[in-house]
Write a protein that binds this DNA or RNA. Structure first.
Length: 485
RNA sequence: GGCCACGUGGCGGAGUGGUUACGCAACGGUCUGCAAAACCGUGUACUCCGGUUCAAUUCCGGACGUGGCCUCCA
């Protein structure tokens, strides 16, 4: 088995070879915690979570280091701090804003079945030189100035893009084209319009740190250069994030890191997930189709119901990570049905509920190792579900092993399905009324009073309850019910 | 305007130079008092126009279309 990953830098799938198999290193750009994370933010978190699990499977749990940062220095955070905590000193208000949203983010992605990364550094802790000597932004900027890759002008420290001959390699942009586009703001103090800010001065009411260039705050990109170096070194294996980060964020990270460290690459593989649309349209607050992870989990804003985390996770994984994904109610319903179907397939087999009880099947390992090819995985799971229903225990175990590897919450499926179907009938009085009616109908059927039994069925149907007549293992009639979908 | 990705059956979504994705829906059947559910089975699709080839949905060129980036948005 060899792992192959698509590398944005070379635009091709390449066999993955770690720098050090005893410590495989991956960095993914995390959220800016000015607000609750939206469902689009969840995509890279889920995708790279599966890659993390795959790497752990291949190289061993103790031999993979996954870093996902939390950006807590940002102008939007400042705005929100002023809005939400007008009485507090700014720095304290900022801490409050980011604490709440960062905690919410952790809870949300945990509900989506994502493992915590090995390290989750916060940008504010890496601005100034640190007692532990880990890389920091101010030192990085000093190095860039010393090496002639950055200059001070107009109260800012700027990266000199012309000092780097192959600037733009990741995004395929050339500096001349940037000029031709003419959309880049013309700042007189910049040597080149493409030059970007490493450090900018803060006014009185903005958060700031004392630096050799005055009290100020870092530019957008430098934090990732600092935090990746701090935990993963100057050169590491995989750097991931959303497609939109290719330019300018990752391009500029590369420029900063490579020039400061004097290396020819920053990371060996650059991976980017595609964007998410909602019902065919770009998600935006103005269109009213903007949904946070938390809203999907806990409110009925999307499709009129709450969605279990594993349904959201499965829906996300059903589309290849590099393709655009259309986030629709029907796609979530389908994911829910898939889980219901798999649960039906597994329940007769009395499998262990302990995650990890069943091995990851080779077929799945091979599919996932081919640039995270989940569609093959899903197809395979359906096939095993079919076999499992015919009594094939080894297929059931493979299905369980796959669900556990992807962390689709198998041990909780029964409960999840119950809660999901009962969404309009959570109160016990109503449930026992259903049971009474069903029992009455059983009696009527036994008496062959089909007029009465059909009347009861209609009565339940009017309440949105669908009956399912079947037989148990001994061939005796059994009636179950569920909420009409 | 520049750069990039993509265009597959009713829908979603893989993949391939000549052979079955898969799921949902639909249709047919079995079962059922009748339904529903469940189970079994059915589908021959690949934007358009050229080119290469014995053969293209798959390779090349063009057209049209969609989406993304080019303003700290995953």
């Amino acid at each position: 088995m060899e792992l192959r990953l698509y590398d944005t830098m070379t635009k091709e799938k390449r066999v993955f070879t770690p720098i050090d198999p005893s410590n495989v290193r991956m960095y993914v750009c995390g959220p800016t915690v000015y607000d609750f994370a939206h469902i689009g933010n969840a995509r890279p978190v889920i995708v790279f979570d599966v890659l993390f699990r795959l790497l752990r499977h291949i190289y061993g749990d103790k031999h993979v280091t996954y870093v996902r940062n939390i950006t807590d220095v940002d102008d939007k955070i400042n705005d929100r701090a002023v809005r939400d905590f007008p009485g507090l000193p700014l720095n304290e208000a900022i801490r409050k804003v980011t604490e709440t949203t960062a905690n919410q983010f952790q809870a949300d992605v945990a509900a989506l079945g994502c493992l915590p990364p090995t390290h989750q550094p916060r940008a504010t802790e890496f601005v100034l030189p640190r007692p532990d000597g880990k890389a920091d932004m101010v030192t990085l900027i000093k190095q860039l100035i010393a090496r002639g890759n950055a200059y001070e002008a107009g109260g800012e420290v700027l990266f000199d893009t012309q000092s780097m001959p192959d600037y733009g390699a990741l995004s395929g942009r050339k500096l001349e084209e940037q000029k031709a586009g003419a959309r880049v703001a013309v700042d007189v103090h910049k040597k080149n319009p493409a030059d970007f800010v490493l450090w900018k001065l803060s006014s009185e009411n903005e958060p700031g740190w004392d630096s050799p260039w005055g009290r100020g705050r870092p530019g957008w990109h430098i934090e990732c250069s600092a935090m990746s170096a701090a935990y993963l070194g100057d050169v590491f294996d995989i750097h991931g994030g959303g497609l939109d980060l290719i330019f300018p964020h990752h391009e500029n990270e590369i420029a900063q890191s490579r020039c400061a460290h004097g290396t020819s690459v920053m990371a060996n593989y650059w991976m980017h997930n595609g964007f998410l649309q909602v019902e065919g349209e770009k998600m935006s607050k103005s269109l009213g189709n903007f949904f946070t992870i938390n809203e999907l989990l806990t409110t009925d804003r999307f499709g009129g119901r709450k969605w279990p985390g594993e349904v959201l996770r499965l829906a996300m994984l059903k589309t290849h990570y590099r393709s655009p994904i259309d986030w629709t109610v029907s796609s979530l319903e389908e994911a829910f049905q898939n889980i219901g179907n798999w649960n039906d397939a597994l329940s007769p087999h009395a499998l262990s509920n302990m995650p990890g009880s069943y091995a990851l099947p080779d077929e799945i390992l091979e599919a996932v190792a081919d640039d995270l090819g989940f569609s093959k995985v899903i197809a395979q799971m359906h096939q095993w579900a079919k076999l499992s229903k015919t009594g094939d225990a080894s297929a059931a175990k493979k299905l369980a092993g796959t669900a556990d590897f992807l962390d689709l919450g198998r041990s909780g499926w029964d409960k999840t399905l119950q809660e999901f179907l009962f969404k309009t009938a959570t109160d016990n009085a109503l449930n026992s009324k259903f049971d009474e009616l069903i029992a009455a109908r059983e009696d009527a059927r036994a008496r062959k009073d089909f007029k009465e039994s059909d009347r009861i069925r209609d009565e339940l149907a009017a309440m949105g309850v669908v009956l399912k007549d079947g037989r148990d293992a001994d061939g005796r009639p059994v009636t179950t019910w569920e909420i009409a979908r």
